[in-house]
């Protein structure tokens, strides 16, 4: 908060703004008229059946995918065909992938310091110090000198979170962070995410972990066939959803 005030930004204005975003893969319409405002510090959980465009949506927010129509503004910077803007947004937005995407040829510590050193031009010593702090926060400082291949899936995903945090992002995107994990490892990753949420990070998570959603989400979004079908607080979303499709979807994933 202090940082924002110092930089003269209004903490209540939306930090991410999507206006009528449309995207096609070839002739397949994946995102249809997406409108979404995210305020600073807000936690949003997106769910929906596979192929509904939820991953594509958050991948558009850091320009991993290009949208064809509409406007995406992240922290005052519009994502357009200007490479400088894209670079700027990517520096401020961290992303955690389903498949972790750690760099297997680098140690855990090197994974965390690579971007700060080469993108932010931080001194190596300093980057390592920051990295160790974040590794402590995700509770794996003792694995710093191991290679990703030597860690369990849950540990790898926590390293991936620490790696993103090392860039000191304003916003974190999570793309199904627990879908590739064995059940016993899901909790250790979710715990770290809950902690991060409690510290006031702006987060957009694509996940089917409804327990997690109930604990941290400020807002739930249900997507189907490339559209936002329902948008509500967790309370309303889980207890009295409006749309039939939401009900059906919730019925399917909560029935077990």
């Amino acid at each position: 908060m202090e940082k924002m005030v110092r930089e003269g930004k209004d903490p209540t204005s939306p930090v991410i703004k999507l206006n009528g975003v449309n995207k096609w893969y070839g002739s397949f319409h994946v995102l249809r008229d997406i409108n979404l405002d995210v305020v600073r510090g807000e936690k949003i959980v997106i769910c929906g059946p596979s192929g509904s465009g939820k991953s594509t949506l958050i991948r558009c927010i850091n320009a991993l995918e290009e949208h064809q129509e509409g406007q995406i503004i992240v922290d005052g910077t519009e994502l357009n065909r200007d490479l400088k803007n894209i670079e700027k947004v990517r520096r401020e937005v961290g992303m955690v992938f389903q498949q972790f995407n750690l760099f297997p040829h680098l140690t855990v510590l090197e994974n965390c310091t690579l971007a700060p050193v080469w993108v932010r031009k931080t001194a190596k010593k300093e980057a390592e110090k920051t990295a160790m702090e974040y590794l402590e926060r995700v509770r794996i400082p003792d694995q710093a000198d191991k290679f990703p291949g030597q860690l369990s899936g849950g540990q790898q995903q926590r390293v991936a979170i620490a790696r993103s945090l090392c860039m000191n992002p304003e916003i974190m995107l999570f793309d199904e962070p627990t879908s590739a994990l064995d059940p016993e490892m899901i909790k250790e990753v979710l715990d770290v995410m809950v902690e991060l949420a409690n510290e006031g990070m702006t987060m957009i998570c694509v996940t089917h972990e409804m327990g997690f959603a109930k604990t941290v989400a400020d807002r739930m979004i249900f997507m189907d066939q490339g559209q936002i079908v329902e948008e509500a607080t967790p309370d309303i979303f889980f207890n009295s959803p409006e749309s039939e499709r939401t009900k059906e979807f919730l019925g399917q994933i909560l029935s077990h």
Partner: peptide
Amino acid sequence: MDNKRQPMLVRLWRDPVWRA
């Protein structure tokens, strides 16, 4: 917003399509 003020060439250089 500030990129409107950039000179034309700089804008083209930063555009991935024009750069390609």
